[in-house]
C-alpha cells in the first residue's frame, strides 16, 4: 500500500484515494516535431526498477495533480511536490542520491 502526502492539502492519502497519471516530467513534442521525437513522446516510457517519478491526482480529495518520487522495487516514497515544477526539486534529488548512490538522475 502506497501512502503519498498531497502537497496541496497535506493529507497523507493512501493509494485508493489517488489516481495514477503515469510518468512525470515528459517533454511534449507536438505538431511539426520530428517523427522520432513525437513517437518517443507518445509511446516511450521509462520502466525502471528503482527510482521513478510519477504523476498522481488526489482524486477523492482536493482533486489536484501532484508529482511523486518513489522506488518501484521497495515502494519507498522519497517525496511529493506540486505539479507546477519542471524538474524534481534539488533537495529531493539530493535526498534520493543519498539513499540510492547508484541512481543516475531523473
Amino acid at each position: 500500500m502506497l501512502i503519498l502526502e498531497c502537497p496541496y492539502c497535506g493529507v497523507k492519502a493512501e493509494e485508493t484515494e489517488l489516481a495514477n497519471g503515469g510518468e512525470a516530467h515528459l517533454k511534449r513534442f507536438g505538431p511539426g516535431s520530428a517523427d522520432n521525437d513525437f513517437e518517443s513522446y507518445m509511446f516511450a516510457r521509462k520502466n525502471p526498477k528503482g527510482v521513478h517519478f510519477e504523476r498522481w491526482r488526489h482524486s477523492y480529495g482536493c482533486g489536484k495533480w501532484f508529482l511523486a518520487a518513489r522506488c518501484t522495487a521497495t515502494l519507498e516514497v522519497f517525496g511529493t511536490y506540486p505539479a507546477q515544477t519542471a524538474e524534481p526539486p534539488a533537495d529531493l534529488q539530493a535526498k534520493i542520491k543519498a539513499k540510492r548512490p547508484d541512481w543516475k538522475g531523473y
Binding site: C9, A13, G61, C62
Partner: peptide, 17 residues
C-alpha cells in the same frame, strides 16, 4: 473510509471516499 481517525484534528474537514 481510508481515514486515520486518530490523527483527525478537531475542526478538520476531510475529503475522502
Amino acid at each position: 473510509m481510508p481515514v486515520d481517525f486518530a490523527t483527525l484534528e478537531p475542526g478538520e474537514l476531510r475529503r475522502s471516499r
